[in-house]
Design a protein around this nucleic acid. Structure first.
Length: 296
DNA sequence: CCGATTACCTGCACGC
DNA sequence: TGCGTGCAGGTAATCG
């Protein structure tokens, strides 16, 4: 489930192996994912060193020394897994347990990490909604990154900024929060979760939080706080889950979550004293989960 | 320009 | 068991 917290979790998992590593060889097992892979994709990466592994919104950014910036997006079903070379008794053997759908292993990076044995970093994506692109200049000049809004991590997103972003918008809050040009990194799950925490209805028009009244200020502040908290909590949970996952089979992927409203249709609302039940509705063609009793 | 809908692709759960 | 249907975390293109 790659929204920002999952992407950040994947980034942190890759970082120890990839940062400082030399890319020895790149296998592109098909010419395209969602988009065609860049021209000379493998050639422009092979032999070069990854200097830093960053993230912007749901994009993973691999900075390549004397090379392009590699922009990776996981789409809906993309994942990376790390396969490390075994011990001295099995030189050259990469062991891993979950290779069941190797049919969807589309890109393989063979790397020599700064520390540790050679490894392969495998990109698997059944639906192929993910993509990899090159940026030649500054990241924020790339069309895919340039229009992105504020990160919901850190302290930048406060009530005042959120109110300004939503001012005058006639669209429902759900759609506004999914708009990556406003806040970059929220997806279908965490929008529902953040709105539940803030006791705000996904159907409420976004502009009602952008007004000058003290009530609007209160709602905007509450929502900004809820967004930052749900993202921070999810990243913290991802980190701990990832450690377990890595110990288990050396792979990187998604972790199980417990959500307050997402995928909990008809179940009791978890707001203390509420007594309502979670409802599923469809907005802009996608599921929204919320409690009509306590979210207004 | 804006907001809403559709397209892209595969896998899976479900009902019959 | 098999088949049709709907649904799934993403963004981009298209339509009004």
């Amino acid at each position: 489930m790659p929204e920002l917290p999952e992407v950040e979790t994947v980034r942190r998992g890759l970082q120890p192996v990839l940062e400082g590593a030399r890319i020895v060889r790149v296998e592109a097992r098909r010419p395209d994912l969602r988009f065609p892979l860049p021209d000379r994709f493998a050639a422009r990466l092979e032999g070069r060193r990854v200097t830093a592994l960053g993230r912007r919104a749901k994009y993973i950014l691999a900075h390549v020394e004397d090379g392009p910036l590699l922009i990776c997006h996981l789409g809906m079903s993309g994942s990376f897994r790390i396969e490390q070379e075994g011990g001295s008794d099995t030189p050259g053997v990469f062991h891993h347990e979950r290779s069941k759908d190797a049919a969807h292993d589309h890109v393989v990076f063979h790397v020599e990490p700064a520390n540790g044995p050679p490894a392969r970093i495998v990109f698997n994506d059944p639906r192929r909604f993910g993509f990899m692109l090159f940026a030649e200049g500054r990241p924020d000049e790339h069309p895919m990154l340039g229009g992105l809004g504020v990160e919901p991590t850190g302290n930048a997103l406060d009530g005042e900024l959120l109110a300004a972003l939503l001012r005058g918008k006639k669209t429902p809050l759900k759609a506004a929060l999914l708009d990556q040009r406003l806040i970059a990194g929220l997806g279908n799950i965490y929008v529902s979760e953040a709105l539940w925490r803030a006791h705000l209805s996904p159907l409420r028009l976004a502009g009602t939080l952008g007004k000058a009244s003290s009530k609007a200020h209160g709602m905007a502040g509450r929502l900004a706080e809820s967004i930052r908290a749900v993202i921070a909590d999810a990243i913290a949970a991802g980190g701990s889950s990832l450690r377990d996952y890595t110990h288990a089979d050396g792979s990187l992927g998604y972790f199980q979550h417990s959500f307050a409203v997402y995928d909990r249709e008809d179940e009791p609302c978890l707001t203390p004293g509420c007594g309502g039940h979670v409802q599923r509705i469809v907005q802009s063609g996608r599921s929204t989960f919320y409690c009509p009793t306590c979210q207004k």
